[in-house]
Design a protein around this nucleic acid. Sequence first.
DNA 1: CCATTTCTGGAGTTGACACTCCAAAAGTCC
DNA 2: GGACTTTTGGAGTGTCAACTCCAGAAATGG
Lengths: 203, 203
Amino acid sequence: MTEVRLTRKGQATRDRIVAAASELMFERGVAGTSTDDVRAAAGVSTSQIYHYFSDKRTLVLAVIAHQTEAVLTTQEPLLSTLDSLEALRAWRDFLVALQQGYGCRGGCPIGSLGSELADVDDEARQAVATGYTRWETSIRAGLHAMRDRGDLRPDADPDRLALATLTALQGGLLLTQVRRDTVALEAALDSMIDHIGSFAPPR
Amino acid sequence: MTEVRLTRKGQATRDRIVAAASELMFERGVAGTSTDDVRAAAGVSTSQIYHYFSDKRTLVLAVIAHQTEAVLTTQEPLLSTLDSLEALRAWRDFLVALQQGYGCRGGCPIGSLGSELADVDDEARQAVATGYTRWETSIRAGLHAMRDRGDLRPDADPDRLALATLTALQGGLLLTQVRRDTVALEAALDSMIDHIGSFAPPR
DNA sequence: CCATTTCTGGAGTTGACACTCCAAAAGTCC
DNA sequence: GGACTTTTGGAGTGTCAACTCCAGAAATGG
């Protein structure tokens, strides 16, 4: 783990490579993206890729990290305040719209990488798992807030509900990609949100 | 679509190729499986693969069809009687145990293919979508039976619940694969089953 | 049992892709 | 402004994978 110094320019080039690789791998998968594709898209020369990354595997790990940040950043305003049914529904609407914006292509930027790499590169698998954990943690925080505030009964299990929600979301993104249609995503998230709502205290 | 005659022996060889390819692609993905790997695993020669399949793409389509049958067959006794909460729970337990039997590897035999191919081969995407539809239809039938019988209130929407259940399952399989742990699958299915249970009529 | 079709073995071709190498240009820092 | 490091260009290399070809062996069917 020798840290190598990067100049500002170097950092910029590195970023451009990761960004280009992320986009291509999102569209065509890791195996479907050659280093030469990345080279062309990033507008760099062959040697630059190998100057910043020891091999393609390492680049892929950087892509996973980059996509994790991107996913969390994109949802940020919503994700940090998922502490009411209305907020959950707004988040759901946001995700559905986002997928439609992509023409229902690509699936989950993290999940697709996970599916492709999990059984093939253990370090990549763990990196994706870490990304999921961060995502899950955000959802969890909102549900805990709801329970603490009394919007959910004490017997609600925020951790398990958060995990189930993330899971439903992942399934929804996969089915959206395969069917080119967001109904599955909608149905899954709606069901989960209704289920969370069923833990509201009697009034 | 010229149908070519196959002798019994020819059919057997073809089947062996598809079976070997299915297993390898389940473990390492489509891109991670070379035709030569398949050749070796099936114990055939190069020309045999290209005698039965015009190219790798076509073989992959056969693999998708094969895995769809396999998935439905494996779950068959349970799948055709998913018409009570107990049956749903037994099915859930079966799926969880199945994943554990695989060491939480591989994910969904159909879903993994879908994720890898959806944006890259439209025919493959549609084939996977068809597989999902058949799966969904089975789940749907059970829920309809429950509603018709009065185990679910008339306002329950079996179609939407079935879709949400399949979606939760898919997400659960993906997370199982990435985290090497079935908790997500359990949480997602349990939540969905509880949600279905919430449509039970008052008594 | 012969003509025809299907099946099989394996060597060969072609292209793509991950990665190397080296020399020069640009940037950094005292 | 000079010694050093970082960055860049691009030609080159070796491997591997998809697919072709052809000739011979087995099966089929009248």
